[in-house]
């Protein structure tokens, strides 16, 4: 594996980062590489250092060891107000003495953006989160979900290189949470933001497809993995630190899989199955596809225009995905 290749490939790179508070090791020697446009979830039980890692990315904590690079330049040592990074706080931290509009405009004002440009961008951001009518409201007149949208608009409007979301759903009740999860991911994908998110909301990742398998070929630039639940091998276009014959798990996000009614013309990264269930979520649907081997695969697709043909219950469908959509998890 060539490390310089990897550096070009990764947008955010966390290299050997540790954080030690007086008596307590919060983060231990962490390495992470995240690509541009990726939404990366940090998962784990509370107290395992997710938030500390996020706060180091935002600049509120300095790592005791290691370095952080973003888009080729070092981030470590730069104070939070000079970083091209914006964070959405768990409590949303909306300024209570400012209107929705003023809250969203706050970050742009710090960048000395021209007044009419600010107005335009704020309007755009509020439209993106579907809040333009509430621009003049004060935060205490907003519901929990609306506050979350304001917090999201406030960081999106700055178009930072990296978005950080600390438990974005924790302050919402369960019903709202389910709805907002889809909306937040939807908005983040629309603006093609690179995003690191701390969550223990299972639904954010609950439907990630995991395939256990064995490495059958390991090269510097690609790996081929054979999984017992898939007929064809999985081809991954980046190297891993492993050896042939080692067992790994391949994670594949449901929205990275495409679905067709005709078989693809390739013999890897594809599967055939029957639609067992469709869950409708407004702009998206989640398809439950059962493969020939009995494995259930989740596919997350945008809903087509009315009248367009689409797979339905018990249809035979062909699934495929790109080599770079796979994430290999070593055991």
């Amino acid at each position: 594996m060539n490390s310089s290749d990897l550096k070009n490939d990764s947008y955010l790179s966390i290299e050997g980062v540790s954080k030690k508070f007086e008596q307590f090791q919060a983060v231990r020697h962490t390495n992470l590489k995240i690509r541009k446009g990726e939404i990366f979830c940090l998962l784990g039980p509370s107290g395992c250092g997710k938030t500390t890692l996020l706060r180091m990315l935002a600049g509120f904590e300095q790592p005791s060891e290691g370095k952080i690079f973003l888009d080729g330049s070092e981030l470590t040592g730069i104070p939070p107000f000079r970083r091209p990074v914006n964070m959405m706080f768990q409590s949303y931290a909306i300024f209570p003495h400012m209107t929705v509009e003023q809250n969203v405009a706050f970050g742009l004002k710090q960048d000395q953006v021209a007044k009419d440009k600010i107005r335009e961008k704020v309007q755009e951001a509020l439209e993106l989160v579907e809040m333009p009518k509430l621009a003049k409201r004060k935060p205490h007149q907003l519901s929990g979900g609306q506050r979350q949208r304001v917090a999201l608009a406030r960081i999106l409007v700055k178009q930072p290189k990296l978005l950080l979301l600390d438990e974005p759903m924790a302050a919402l009740d369960k019903k709202l949470r389910e709805q907002m999860q889809l909306e937040v991911v939807d908005i983040l994908e629309k603006v093609e933001a690179t995003c690191v998110m701390v969550t223990h909301a299972a639904a954010f990742i609950g439907s990630v497809n995991l395939f256990d398998g064995t490495v059958i070929q390991d090269e510097a630039d690609h790996v081929i993995i054979q999984s017992p639940v898939l007929k064809h091998p999985i081809f991954v276009d980046h190297g891993i630190t492993g050896t042939e014959g080692m067992s790994v798990t391949v994670a594949l996000r449901p929205e990275k899989i495409s679905m067709a009614s005709k078989p693809p013309e390739k013999l890897h990264n594809c599967a055939t199955g029957i639609v067992q269930d469709i869950a409708y979520f407004g702009s998206h649907s989640i398809y439950h596809v059962e493969l020939e081997t009995g494995q259930l695969v989740y596919v997350h697709l945008p809903n087509p225009e009315r009248g367009a043909s689409h797979a339905t219950w018990q249809d035979k469908v062909f699934l495929e995905w790109n080599p770079h959509s796979c994430v290999v998890l070593t055991h």
Binding site: G59, P80, F81, N86, M87, F89, I94, F95, K158
Partner: peptide, 9 residues
């Protein structure tokens, strides 16, 4: 922290 994060020294 939010204010610092949004770029205000």
């Amino acid at each position: 922290e939010a204010s610092l994060d949004l770029g205000a020294p």
